[in-house]
Amino acid sequence: MIRVVLADDQELVRSGFAMILDAQPDIEVVGEAADGTAAVTAVREHVPDVVLLDIRMPGLDGIEAAKIVCAETPARAIMLTTFGRDDYVYDALYAGASGFLLKDVRRDDLVHAVRVVAAGESLLAPAVTRRLISDIARNRPRAGATESQRLAVLTARERETLRMLGRGLSNAEIATAMVVSEHTVKTHVSNVLSKLGLRDRVQAVIAAYETRLIEPA
């Protein structure tokens, strides 16, 4: 059973999402919150698999709440907003979020997002999102180590795995391209995340662009 906490200052949005998710046989909404502080408290209390956080909430906003939740708990965050601004996506992903949805998301897509994120994956498959991350990395490069310094810890195979992650390839597609088993790919992905201190594939995509392993189109 996938345990979910919902945080949004609009009660109608919360109740609507809760109704959709609770109707699924494998999902249970275990807590709700109307602001960021209450969301953090609910996550600590209920220990959910996934927390849906509205970006704009009174007091502690969704971005700050995500930073705390992702740093202190095993819960994976999906950000919700009525705005599709690039800086929200960028900040949310750096806060540790594994997904980003607009509030007008379709019912099936909402359910799919919760299942995907609960399974440890991210919502970066769509080409539009990959292009967005490319633009963000190009326009707002993160200050820090150069490509050679950051990537020096990776083997040649791990570096190539990171390159393919940045292009949005699945494990199966990477396995085909590298002519190895999916189990081997999973090992490479795990090593990449661990060595670079990345939470998940979302941050791996950003790292691939930031280090210029992939040049923005």
Results as ranks from 00 to 15, higher is better:
residue 53 L to Q: 02
residue 79 M to I: 02
residue 53 L to R: 07
residue 55 I to E: 09
residue 56 R to F: 06
residue 63 I to K: 09
residue 65 A to V: 08
residue 68 I to N: 04
residue 62 G to Y: 03
residue 63 I to F: 06
residue 55 I to G: 11
residue 69 V to M: 10
residue 80 L to C: 07
residue 55 I to Y: 15
residue 69 V to W: 10
residue 66 A to F: 09
residue 66 A to G: 09
residue 65 A to S: 12
residue 76 R to F: 10
residue 76 R to G: 07
residue 74 P to F: 13
residue 86 D to M: 14
residue 63 I to H: 06
residue 68 I to S: 01
residue 70 C to K: 02
residue 75 A to S: 14
residue 86 D to V: 11
residue 65 A to Y: 03
residue 78 I to K: 09
residue 84 G to V: 09
residue 72 E to M: 08
residue 52 L to K: 02
residue 76 R to S: 14
residue 61 D to C: 03
residue 50 V to E: 04
residue 73 T to P: 13
residue 82 T to C: 12
residue 50 V to R: 06
residue 62 G to P: 02
residue 61 D to H: 08
residue 81 T to L: 10
residue 66 A to R: 03
residue 75 A to E: 00
residue 52 L to V: 04
residue 54 D to I: 00
residue 56 R to P: 00
residue 80 L to H: 02
residue 76 R to H: 11
residue 78 I to H: 02
residue 80 L to Y: 11
residue 75 A to N: 06
residue 60 L to A: 05
residue 65 A to P: 11
residue 57 M to C: 08
residue 72 E to Q: 15
residue 82 T to M: 15
residue 72 E to F: 06
residue 62 G to N: 04
residue 59 G to Y: 11
residue 85 R to D: 15
residue 74 P to K: 08
residue 65 A to E: 07
residue 57 M to R: 05
residue 66 A to Y: 06
residue 51 V to I: 13
residue 56 R to D: 11
residue 75 A to V: 05
residue 50 V to S: 04
residue 75 A to Y: 02
residue 71 A to C: 08
residue 61 D to A: 07
residue 78 I to G: 05
residue 74 P to N: 12
residue 63 I to T: 01
residue 70 C to I: 01
residue 57 M to A: 06
residue 84 G to I: 11
residue 79 M to R: 02
residue 66 A to Q: 05
residue 81 T to A: 10
residue 52 L to D: 00
residue 82 T to L: 14
residue 80 L to E: 03
residue 67 K to G: 08
residue 81 T to S: 15
residue 61 D to V: 07
residue 51 V to E: 04
residue 78 I to Q: 06
residue 82 T to E: 13
residue 56 R to H: 13
residue 61 D to Q: 08
residue 57 M to G: 04
residue 72 E to Y: 07
residue 63 I to V: 14
residue 56 R to E: 06
residue 69 V to K: 09
residue 71 A to N: 09
residue 50 V to Q: 07
residue 70 C to G: 04
residue 64 E to P: 08
residue 79 M to A: 05
residue 85 R to E: 15
residue 50 V to D: 08
residue 56 R to I: 11
residue 50 V to M: 05
residue 79 M to D: 00
residue 81 T to N: 11
residue 57 M to L: 08
residue 53 L to V: 00
residue 64 E to Q: 15
residue 65 A to D: 07
residue 61 D to Y: 07
residue 65 A to K: 05
residue 73 T to N: 13
residue 61 D to K: 11
residue 77 A to Q: 05
residue 54 D to G: 00
residue 70 C to N: 06
residue 82 T to A: 15
residue 68 I to R: 10
residue 62 G to E: 01
residue 86 D to R: 14
residue 67 K to D: 04
residue 85 R to S: 14
residue 60 L to R: 12
residue 55 I to V: 15
residue 58 P to D: 01
residue 50 V to L: 13
residue 56 R to C: 01
residue 80 L to I: 03
residue 73 T to R: 12
residue 55 I to A: 08
residue 74 P to Q: 10
residue 54 D to S: 02
residue 52 L to R: 04
residue 77 A to K: 01
residue 76 R to T: 08
residue 58 P to F: 01
residue 57 M to Q: 09
residue 76 R to M: 09
residue 75 A to D: 01
residue 54 D to Q: 01
residue 77 A to D: 02
residue 53 L to F: 06
residue 82 T to N: 14
residue 56 R to A: 11
residue 50 V to F: 07
